[in-house]
Every structure is written in structure tokens, then in C-alpha cells.
């Protein structure tokens, strides 16, 4: 019987239905947990990039409350030259949202091995960086992958000058000890030259675009989560 065509088709359909339904059921059962995990990781990234505290020491409720109180999805700006849209985040000093602490600039582009996605925090006057968090990257672990580690990201918290620069790139990622009279230098990671070059290209591209976009009027802010 097992070699009859109708049985073969019926068997395949049956197996596909049973296992497909089981996987779908498990996914639906776990969907809330997966979504909560994903949201928590994103909120922790916002806490880190806007320097609201050490996300490792805050519990889930505190992280969620801080983000809900102080971070809002700000305006949308469009670069007239490239058409790139920025959905900027606005991070405030206080729960009353009276003083703007930083803009969060989401960026995404190619690293050396794959896409790199993150958020760059910049001062409200767009003259210096205040933080950097990498949300997604596929660089070599231990080498290029260190772009998400403090050895690289803390330099952006210390403040890299990012005002428009008519005579060169907005910022430079180069060997430690390179000249830094203009405050635009970021120490590269040893052994990760190609990733650092890709990051330099990616950040400069977004920052130049951001400066052009911020010279344009704001569009309606998006609704939804920050």
C-alpha cells in the first residue's frame, strides 16, 4: 500500500500538516516571550546608548520605565540629496521631557562581512557624539566583532566631534595615536582594518546625510514605540 501514489501524497500531506501545525503552535505559544525578549534587548540598547545607567544592573521593569519616560520617537527628516529618511529618537534628561539630552540616529549598512545596524547618539546641536550601540553585526568575533564592545563604543560616549567638515570626512577611524587636533579621531581596532574602514564609511555617510537632513524642516513624527 505504501507505494501507491495516493498514499504517498496523503502521507506527505499528513506529515507536513502534523509537523507544520506543531511548529506553528509552539511558535504562537512562545511568540509573546520572543517579542518581550526582543523588546527588552532593544530597550537595553537605548539605555546604553543614551547613558541612562548600566543596563546590566537594571531589571526589566526599570529599563522599560526609563525608556517609556525619557525616549520618544522624534521627527522624521529627509536628506534632500539622497532621499534617505531618518526616524530620529529623542532622549530627554528628565521624565518631564523638558531638556533634550540627545538625538538617536539609527543607521544601517554593510560592514566587512555583513550588515551592521546600530544607533548613534549625538548632541542636540549635532556637534559631537554621545554614544554608540551596535544592534546587529556579523563581523569576525573577537576582531571586527569588537565594534560592539566598550573598547570601541566608549570612544563615542566620550565625544567625537561631528560638526560638518568641508575639508574632509566627518570623523576618522584610524590607528591609535593618529593626529587628533580637530577631535574627529576614533581609535581603530587592531586586526580589524576592513571592519573599521567599513564603519568609517558607514558612519560618515549617515552623518553627512544627517547634517543635510537636519537643515530641512521636520516631518510628522511617527507613532508607536520609541
Amino acid at each position: 500500500m505504501t507505494s501507491k501514489p495516493w498514499f504517498i501524497v496523503a502521507f506527505m500531506v499528513g506529515v507536513a500538516l502534523v509537523f507544520g501545525s506543531a511548529v506553528t503552535g509552539i511558535y504562537l505559544g512562545a511568540a509573546d516571550l520572543l517579542e518581550r525578549n526582543s523588546e527588552f534587548l532593544r530597550q537595553r540598547a537605548l539605555i546604553a546608548v543614551f547613558d541612562y545607567g548600566d543596563p546590566e544592573r537594571l531589571d526589566k521593569a526599570a529599563v522599560a520605565a526609563l525608556v517609556r519616560e525619557r525616549v520618544v520617537a522624534g521627527e522624521v527628516r529627509t536628506d534632500p540629496q539622497t532621499g534617505r529618511q531618518f526616524s530620529l529618537l529623542k532622549a530627554y534628561e528628565d521624565a518631564g521631557r523638558t531638556t533634550l539630552r540627545a538625538y538617536g540616529v539609527p543607521f544601517r549598512g554593510m560592514g566587512f562581512w555583513g550588515p551592521v545596524q546600530g544607533i548613534l547618539a549625538v548632541s542636540p546641536d549635532l556637534t559631537r557624539t554621545l554614544g554608540l550601540v551596535i544592534l546587529e553585526q556579523a563581523e569576525t568575533p573577537g576582531l571586527g566583532g569588537r565594534i560592539e564592545e566598550p573598547i570601541f563604543t566608549e570612544q563615542f560616549r566620550a565625544g567625537i566631534a561631528i560638526a560638518p567638515n568641508p575639508s574632509g570626512p566627518v570623523l576618522r577611524i584610524a590607528a591609535p595615536g593618529s593626529p587628533n587636533a580637530d577631535g574627529r579621531h576614533v581609535d581603530a581596532i587592531s586586526g580589524a582594518t576592513q571592519t573599521c574602514l567599513a564603519m568609517e564609511r558607514l558612519l560618515n555617510d549617515h552623518l553627512e546625510s544627517l547634517h543635510r537632513a537636519m537643515a530641512q524642516p521636520a516631518q510628522d513624527p511617527p507613532t508607536g514605540r520609541p
Partner: peptide, 10 residues
Amino acid sequence: YTPKQVRMMV
């Protein structure tokens, strides 16, 4: 019960 023709698909 698995038909040998489709066993690897299964």
C-alpha cells in the same frame, strides 16, 4: 509507514 520514494523528504 513511510513510502521509500519520499523517505528523505519526510
